[in-house]
């Protein structure tokens, strides 16, 4: 099976300080992968590099076989991205925001586009009344849902989520996790998420990529809990992580 995301020998540096050094990462189709790491280990930098927002000093990054920094067509129309603060365009309504990516790469008639945008918004559990509101009129949780609707608008095959549950209350966060797993299983998406939320990690991730020593260690939660590496060991055996794990074992995985 071809990996959906393949990062090879990535080097990212600020001046002489290397954040990533010969980092490699492969993500397979249909996986939900969490990216974790201590502060300053370059989680966001890694994500931005994969998304084509920060050209790395060296390395090869391919998403669905497209070279992200190559001259040919990029993978932009096959991915959806949910930014940490939603990043809805503030000058446009929710409807226009969701329609924008649809309009960009297709000549769909306006009526169809409109219906499709409404469908995506409904899928994310947002009331239809929110469609004609501006982002500034929505609550934090609603902005995230609207941004997710936009990320899903162009039928992406891979979804990138940057701290999807940050800033949501625990109930909102749990609902969001459920939504993500539901979408993943029904649309057969590959999902990559940067997260600090241990409940999300244990709740929905198949594998977790840990940024340590300027590289990535990737494995299932069971493997990582057994890891001998001090940071990984501490992170996954932290009391809060333990509790999240126990909760998950008693409830059973949701998908």
């Amino acid at each position: 099976m071809e990996p959906v995301v393949s990062v090879r020998n990535l080097v990212n540096a600020f001046g002489t300080f290397r954040v990533h050094d010969q980092l490699c990462l492969e993500i397979m189709p249909g996986e939900i992968v969490g990216i974790v790491g201590g502060s300053g280990t370059g989680k966001s930098v890694l994500m931005r590099s994969i998304l084509g927002l920060r050209r790395p000093q060296a390395g090869d990054i391919r998403v669905l076989g497209h070279d992200v920094y190559g001259s040919g067509p990029g993978p932009q129309q096959y991915w959806g991205v949910l930014f940490q603060k939603g990043a809805l365009l503030s000058a446009l309504t929710v409807r226009q925001n969701v329609e924008l990516p649809i309009a960009l790469h297709s000549d769909m008639p306006a009526a169809t586009r409109r219906e499709l945008a409404e469908l995506k918004v409904r899928m994310t559990g947002l009331p239809v009344s929110a469609l004609d509101k501006y982002p500034s009129e929505l609550s934090g949780g609603m902005v995230k849902r609207a941004a997710l609707a936009r990320a899903l608008a162009r039928e992406p095959r891979i979804l990138f989520l940057d701290e999807p549950t940050a800033g949501l209350d625990p109930i909102g966060a749990t609902e969001f996790d459920k939504l993500v797993t539901y979408l993943q299983s029904s649309l057969n998406l590959t999902i990559v998420m940067v997260t600090h939320d241990v409940d999300s990690l244990f709740g929905i991730c198949d594998r977790v990529a840990v940024l340590v020593d300027k590289k990535v260690v990737i494995g299932t939660l069971d493997e990582l809990t057994q890891s001998q590496h001090p940071w990984i060991h501490d992170y996954f055996n932290d009391p809060r992580a333990r509790r999240a794990q126990q909760m998950e074992n008693t409830n059973g995985r949701e998908h």
């Binding site: 931005r48 998304l51 084509g52 927002l53 990029g74 932009q76 129309q77 991915w79 991205v81 930014f83 940490q84 603060k85 939603g86 990043a87 809805l88 365009l89 503030s90 000058a91 924008l100 990516p101 960009l104 790469h105």
Partner: peptide
Amino acid sequence: ASLGVMKLNEELDALRVMGL
């Protein structure tokens, strides 16, 4: 002000990942 706010709000990044 508008470009600055859009930048703080990651809107410019959001446009870029859409291929704009």
